[in-house]
Structures are given as structure tokens and as C-alpha cells.
Nucleic acid binder design. Structure first.
Lengths: 392, 392
DNA sequence: GGACCTTCTGGGAGCGCTCTCAGAGCTGTT
DNA sequence: AACAGCTCTGAGAGCGCTCCCAGAAGGTCC
């Protein structure tokens, strides 16, 4: 590890022989102190007595209650007083203490996003940021915050459970549940409404009460892909599926089968959503059915691996074999050789919808039971075909 | 939009002519109610009277104070009582109310991660998830939560400022600051310690007090790349830079120049971190210096664009022109044609270090001034070269 | 001008927790 | 047997806020 207190290393560091830094960085406890010791953190200790509502009220010459009213919209307070309070707020730089407010209102203005990583592709694919962006957009429009909880090991479920139980959030967004995932149960137990991203594994014993989820139209997208290949006149259309314990894989395969109900099972090979897996599946397919003239890969990554194998096998794309992917990951699909025709899904919209659905449950709760909007239903986001050279 | 209350559409949906769903999804307010109306949300209203410390204490036959002690570690409580309290906690399913605790301890066990999106590449590159993962790992080990705040428009700064001022987090992690970014100022004003990811734009007026940041060794990585190209015997080494208002671009260019101080300026072209931009820069380079025999692109995306232009220009890679990228984004670098030699950075470690540095500031604060660990210094994470076919 | 509204305002309780402090209960010493 | 010196426990205050409710202030109507 190289440490610097200067902004830039001097060019003198650049000796002829480059001392390659070791990859393993020592823990930062070894950090060299900055050239000049930072002034003691008096900025925070003591915490600089943040102004309270009390002090605002005093300065404005009103009661705490009136000050509170003004801060929260000011309904039913005479304009003159309202103005005085607002001024006091400004002068003092007052910001309400959220913890105190939460304690009494029981509203946190925050929702949790839980990502159970090992099971989901969320880290290997670039969708994560888009998801979050969609969620964030919707949430911040309603002045809600987003607390991100990641699960990596089994014991993290406890941590997350404790946190949710701690009442710091008003609702939960869950991602790609696998079979018997304890998360819905946990959320239910602590009484938090939740919405799931991606169709859940199977509605087993736990979830007879139906879950609200948002998903891409995987099945419809697959149909789009196969239909396109057919319109191109291809008749021996193979498919490379994702891992078949994931609903997105299953749905995409189902879409393929919708249009090819009598298809040869030899034309179906299972991949794992990685380029390598896609390549291996492609090789298997080629061995079994050398006469295939099209492939629908259930992800762009797998398609890129398939493309390489096809190239190495001397097949021209799209002349000999047309290829369609799924996802439309820009950095992959647009830059394969040749560029990939693929099915695009609107990930950001998915995130946005998840948040919207959850928010609706939240507001539904506090309203009157009669005239309350109907309980939300699951939603499927449409997909569309993006044509590039690999199948044109 | 297609809505379903059933888990799967029936295959009957699959008529011959596929009615392509419109892309614009109507707002979910149009959602069709589930076949059976959800039972009124009585699970939450009334909020099912979550057990309090008080009730735990009562059940265990001790005082609230003792119960509190047990819940918080149980130091100085006789084993017998401790056991009784623990049992009461279990039976009641007690979970402490975090807001109440925060109100008195002034500790939130939460830190904010602020991403000012438009300026950063954070959404176009796949690093975001890795960053968060690193941060999450470190944070949850210390039982801290992560609140994600995204900035998209100017007015979001207000929202974020208010949130930070609300005292809901103990510290802030900031990403890729641009010149005169108001964020450090805001954090400073509300008295929150912070750490920056990526070397900040320039230490202008505001930041004479030095900032703590964590960055990849962009400069060193660039040197690695150029050095490698040189060792391959290349002598006319061009570079495609990122946008030169970003420090990572600047640092990578500086690294290039470190080894080629007398280089021809015609060998330098500015890109924009996109494949297209990389392609355009490559074309310009080829026009200016048709004799170039190597290119160092400051990102894998740009390298992939360059690769295509090179291919179209009939240059063989690596025989005619060797290419090295930067980032080592697996899904891009490993699957270009040919696969890309590139500089790998350890993003997750970056996230981890940012969190660790922040946590250290936090603990430093509450400890005694004497013997407190030295104030943290900025840290640079080493990079390393990954050799693939494009420069071998 | 008094009864009766309506509109505003402030007092005060209380959200669930932590933490100080005083005192209860022990043990050990003289 | 008295007392010092522990350890352990509980009463109570208070964190900053919201919101209920009582009452003040001002208007209207007979």
C-alpha cells in the first residue's frame, strides 16, 4: 500500500524499476499520521449542542407546540407567528432530530432494501445500480430514505432481522428470493410491509398469502426473441438457459417453449449466466445438433461466450447461426463481435415500481379502511427487442 | 404493462401475433386488485404493541435499568438475573427501539453513503455494487447500517443536507467529488466526519483542511500498463484518456507521462470512458500517427471501442497494435476479441477501506484525546496488471 | 352586553431508552 | 459486633419531539 498525505506523488517516485506494490494491503491501522495532526475533533465533541425545537420556540417567543406546528407545515398558526418561527429556524440553523420524531410518530421515512447476495446475480450483473437508482428516485420523491442491507452469510439474516425488528424502517424491498428464503417470514413477523423484486422461487407453505412482486416479463421477452428468429426464417432454434433453479431462467425457457412446444430437447442446454458457461453450453449444442441455425441465450453474458465458441467453430454469425441474447447490458451487448441482438428490460422502472408499490401499501395502512386503494398486485414490466447484427 | 395475480400467464396468452406490450407502463394506480382482497392490514394497525424494555423488566421481575444492562452486554449483573432477563427477551421477542436508543446515546450505528451521480461514472460502470459490498462488509462487522443517498438534481443537495443534519447517521462516505462540490462543506457544517472515495477534484478554498480519501493507484496502474507495453518492445505507444476533468483520468495520464516524458502529444487522445468515445479517439490516433504500435486506453470500455476500430482498420491485435485497458471489468475485458490485457483495481477493498477509515474516525472521537490513534491519512490501493491476449 | 362559537396557543404528558446516583445487601476486617 | 468497602440493583431524570386538550382571544348574534 502506498500512502500519501500529499495530493499527488512526486514524479520522483517513478524510478526506472517499478516497485510493484504488493496486492495485499496492510490494515490501515498502519497508516502514517498526516504531516500535521488534525485539530482535536472539537467540531463534534461536545456535539456542539444542536439547536432544539425548544430553543427555536424560545427565540421566536412562542411555545414549543407552536414551533412544532410551523416546522411541520404551519397549519393553524397565524402568519405573524409563523414568520417569526421560520426566522428563528433559519438563524439557529435548526434541523429536527429525526430520532425524537420517530420515537413519537412511529414513522421513519425510511425503507430497507435487502439484498441476499449469494443467491442473486445482483453482484455479477450491472443491474444493481439501475435498480437502486429507480428505487431511489421514487423514494426520495416521497422524502423517504433507503437503508441498504446486504446478506452474505447465514448469520447475516439475524443481523438483518434484528435491524428490521428495531423499527428503523417502515417497509422492506426484497430481492430475488430463493426457495424458503426466511426474509418474507421475518418481515411478516415484525409487521413490515414488503415488496419483492423478481418472481419468488415458489409459493411454498409460508407464502400462501400471496406476495407482491415486480418482475420483468421474462417469458414474454423470450417469446419476442424466438419469434424474431423465426421471422428470420430460422427453424432449428436452440436455447441456452440460465440456472434452472432461478425463476427468471425458468420463465425465459417457458417463453421459448411457448413458441416451440414440439422442440427437440437436444436444442436446450443449461448455462449459468456466465460467459464461460454460455460457451460450454454452446459447444454442447453444436456437438448434439450441428445443424442448428439460431440460438437464443438467456443472458448477454452467456451469448458473448456462445459467440466466441461459434467463431472458433468457424460458424459465421448471423449468416450460419443467428444469436439473440437477453438483458441488453450495454457494455456487453453493443460490443460483442458482432453486436448482439437482445431483449431489453427496463430495470430502473422495475426499481421504481417496487418502491411505488411499497409506498402505496404504506399510505394505505394509515388511511381509512373504507375507500382505501385496493391492495397492490404484482406487476410485470414489459421487455422489448433490440436489433443489432447478430440476428438481423 | 401486464399485470397478473396468477404466478404465471397461461400459455394461452401466446397467440400467434404477439401483442407487444407498450413500453410506457401506466402508473400502478391502475393495478387490478388481487382476486381476493387482502385481509385488512391489522398486522400493523395498531402496531401490535411491540414489547418494550419495561415489559421485559416486568416479566423478568427486575427494574428497567437492569434489563437494559443485560440487553447491552449484561456487565455487572448477577448471572441469575441475567438469565431471567434473557429469557423474558426471548419469550416476548423483544427488540430494542433504535430511535429511543439513538435519542439518548446520540449514536445511530448508521453511516450515509452519498453518491452524486451525474458527475460520477458510478452508474455506467459495474463498480458500484462492488464498492457497496466492500463498504457493507466492513460496516456490518461493526454493526453499522448503510443509508444510501443519491443525488441527481441540484435540489437533491438540500434533501441530503437536511437528512445529514437530522442526525440520523454518524458519518458519511462521499463518492468522486468534483470541483467545488458542496458535500464536504455540508458534512463539515453538521459536524459529521467523512471519507471520500476517489481523489477529490482540487483542494480549492474550502478544503485547505485536507480531506481523507481512498483511491486506486491510477497513476501507478498506468505506469504498469505502459511499462508492460515497453517490455513488449513497443515504442510508439499511444493513450486514450478519460475526460480530463476527472482526477482518475488525470492520474492515469500522468502515469503514462511518467514513463514517456518526451512523448509525442499526437499520441494522446481524449475519450469519455464510453466504447464509442474510445473508438473515436482510436480513429483520430490512427489518422494522426498511422505508425503507432500500442495503445493504453484508460478504461476497458474505451479499449473495447478501440479494438473494434482497429479491427475495422485492418490492424491485427496484438501483432500490429498491442492494447492495454484499465479497470478489469470482467464482463468486458475477458470477452473482447481478443481478450484484453488490463490493469485491475481492487474496488471492493476500496470500499472496505473507506468504511474502515470512517469507523476509525468515529471511535477516535469518543475515546480519550491522549493515546487516541493518529488521525487517518488518505490511502491508495495498489493495482496490478492482468495479462490477456491483446498485449502479450 | 352577554352567551356562544371559532380560531389560536401553550402546558404537559409521554414515546422507549440510557445512565447517574443513591442505597440495599454482602463480605471481610478489626 | 460494628463498620468499611464491595458489588448489585432500581428510582428517576431526561433525550427532543408530537399531539391532546384546556383555555385565551377574538367574533358573531340576539
Amino acid at each position: 500500500m502506498i500512502e500519501r498525505s500529499e495530493q499527488q506523488p512526486s514524479a520522483a517516485n517513478t524510478g526506472g524499476t517499478l516497485a510493484r506494490p504488493t496486492h495485499e494491503a496492510p490494515p490501515p491501522s498502519e497508516a502514517r499520521p498526516a504531516s500535521e495532526a488534525r485539530p482535536t475533533h472539537e467540531a463534534r465533541r461536545p456535539p456542539e449542542a444542536r439547536p432544539t425545537l425548544e430553543s427555536v420556540a424560545e427565540r421566536a417567543g412562542v411555545s414549543r407546540a407552536t414551533a412544532s406546528r410551523v416546522v411541520n407545515g404551519g397549519a393553524g398558526v397565524r402568519e405573524a407567528l409563523r414568520e417569526k418561527v421560520r426566522q428563528a429556524v433559519d438563524e439557529l440553523g435548526y434541523a429536527p432530530n429525526l430520532a425524537a420524531r420517530t420515537l413519537v410518530t412511529r414513522r421513519n421515512q425510511a425503507i430497507a432494501v435487502v439484498v441476499a447476495e449469494p443467491e442473486s446475480r445482483i453482484f455479477s450483473d450491472p443491474f444493481f445500480a439501475q435498480h437502486l437508482r429507480g428505487i431511489s428516485r421514487e423514494l426520495s420523491a416521497a422524502d423517504n430514505q433507503m437503508v441498504l442491507l446486504m446478506i452474505e452469510e447465514q448469520r447475516d439474516y439475524d443481523r438483518v432481522g434484528r435491524y428490521l425488528a428495531g423499527g428503523h424502517v417502515d417497509g422492506v424491498l426484497l430481492f430475488s428470493l430463493h426457495r424458503s428464503d426466511p426474509l418474507p417470514h421475518i418481515a411478516r413477523r415484525v409487521g413490515l410491509p414488503f415488496v419483492v423484486g423478481g418472481r419468488p422461487g415458489w409459493s411454498g407453505a409460508e407464502s400462501d398469502r400471496e406476495l407482491v412482486y415486480v418482475d420483468s416479463d421474462n417469458r414474454g421477452g423470450a417469446r419476442l426473441a424466438v419469434q424474431h428468429l423465426r421471422e428470420l426464417g430460422r427453424s432449428r432454434i436452440a436455447t441456452i438457459t440460465g440456472p434452472l433453479d432461478q425463476t427468471s431462467s425458468i420463465d425465459r425457457l417457458d417463453g421459448y417453449r411457448d413458441l416451440l412446444p414440439d422442440g427437440d430437447p437436444e436444442l436446450i442446454a443449461e448455462g449459468d449466466f456466465t460467459p464461460d458457461g454460455g460457451g460450454r453450453a454452446m459447444a454442447a449444442l453444436l456437438a448434439r445438433r450441428p445443424d442448428l441455425d439460431a440460438v437464443f441465450a438467456a443472458s448477454d453474458s452467456m451469448a458473448s461466450g456462445a459467440l466466441r465458441v461459434l467463431r472458433e467453430a468457424g460458424r459465421r454469425v448471423p449468416q450460419d447461426v443467428a444469436v439473440v441474447g437477453f438483458d441488453d447490458v450495454e457494455s456487453v451487448a453493443a460490443w460483442t463481435e458482432p453486436p448482439l441482438t437482445t431483449v431489453r428490460q427496463d430495470i430502473e422502472e422495475m426499481g421504481r415500481l417496487m418502491a411505488r408499490l411499497l409506498l402505496r401499501q404504506l399510505s394505505g395502512e394509515s388511511g381509512p379502511a373504507v375507500g382505501r386503494p385496493a391492495a397492490p398486485t404484482s406487476v410485470i414490466i414489459p421487455t422489448r427487442l433490440v436489433e443489432r447484427d447478430s440476428a438481423r
